[in-house]
């Protein structure tokens, strides 16, 4: 077979493979939305879940998911920024840096259920945080931190060395060069990575089952004092999230409408993650244009 025909053939094969993947993903998404969308209503999104009867909603779980996400990102974003900047800009090429990098890689491939059990042993039992939002947020940080750090480091590294040289040669200090030249150039990549990380965290269940718990006690949305037991902001209350709720309904749900609730919740979850992805792209482009005046 000559090169030209091989080229044509392989182009065809690649198109076919790409098409197959798109069909699989699209049908999966389509199925979930098709099954779930009819069950979504304002009532469904805002009312609490019911354990034994039909007509329960996912209001508390939805709030828990967002609150847990916020706390997890509050902890992991500064940490990953610091670690990523250190690795990309300051770390010398020596064995210590290699150890840190390898550790990050191993952590990032850790199954989330292992992260969950680690969180259970350390945060829930050892630190006696119990099944709580705090334990969940810390477990999610463990789960998310390696990927975010990697993302920050990669985004910073993709800024060419010329830029750093230009900054230093202009009489900027190293810190000024990093904060005023390298980070702004890398910002779109960093933000995109953060938001994608947020999407991953939002859909995470296994790391939360044994940390944030599987129950969603009733909340009083009129009480915003974080020290009160029924306050939505209390970080020491157990908090079942949307993803955990879906898992739980499917494994042990005894509501008559369990299938419908599960389908609806899945659709909401997917829509939220999709929104995160679109937001990431939009925000990334926008910030890049703003910073670069392109």
């Amino acid at each position: 077979m000559d090169a030209k025909r091989a080229d044509k053939l392989m182009t065809g094969v690649l198109y076919a493979v790409a098409g197959l993947i798109i069909i699989i993903l699209a049908s999966l998404l389509g199925y979930i939305l098709w099954q779930g969308l009819p069950h979504i209503s304002w009532h469904f999104l805002t009312s609490p879940a019911k354990s034994f009867e039909a007509g329960g909603g996912i209001g508390i779980q939805l709030f828990n998911s967002f609150y847990l996400l916020l706390l997890a990102m509050l902890i992991s974003v500064p940490l990953s920024l610091g670690a990523g900047i250190y690795l990309a800009e300051y770390a010398r090429n020596n064995w210590l840096t290699d150890v840190v990098r390898t550790a990050i890689e191993i952590l990032s491939s850790l199954p989330s259920v292992v992260v969950g059990l680690f969180g259970f042993l350390v945060f829930v039992l050892q630190f006696q945080f119990g099944f709580s939002i705090l334990s969940g947020a810390l477990a999610l940080t463990m789960f998310n931190l390696p990927l975010l750090t990697r993302n920050v480091e990669d985004a910073l590294r993709s800024v060419s060395f010329d830029q750093r040289e230009a900054g230093l040669a202009l009489g900027l200090s190293r810190w000024e060069t990093v904060t005023h030249i390298v980070i702004p150039s890398a910002l779109p990549g960093i933000i995109t990575g953060m938001i994608l990380g947020a999407g991953r965290v939002f859909g995470e269940a296994a790391a939360l089952i044994y940390t944030a718990g599987q129950s969603a006690p009733a909340l009083n949305f009129g009480d915003w004092n974080p020290l009160h037991v029924a306050s939505p902001l209390n970080i020491f209350r157990p908090a079942e999230t949307l993803a955990v709720h879906i898992w739980k309904i499917n494994s042990e749900g005894i509501q008559p409408d369990a299938a419908a609730v599960s389908a609806g919740a899945s659709a909401v979850l997917i829509i939220a993650v999709l929104a995160f992805n679109l937001l990431a792209r939009w925000l990334g482009n926008r910030i890049y244009r703003k910073v670069t005046a392109a």
Binding site: G171, I181, T292
Partner: peptide, 27 residues
């Protein structure tokens, strides 16, 4: 840092910052 302010440098490859022309100059 002070030294490099008094002794400026221009490189082989043009290396403007990815900002506006104005911002480049006033940086």
């Amino acid at each position: 840092v002070q030294l490099r302010k008094s002794v400026g440098m221009v490189f082989q490859q043009p290396n403007p910052f990815p900002f506006s022309i104005y911002e480049n100059v006033v940086y």
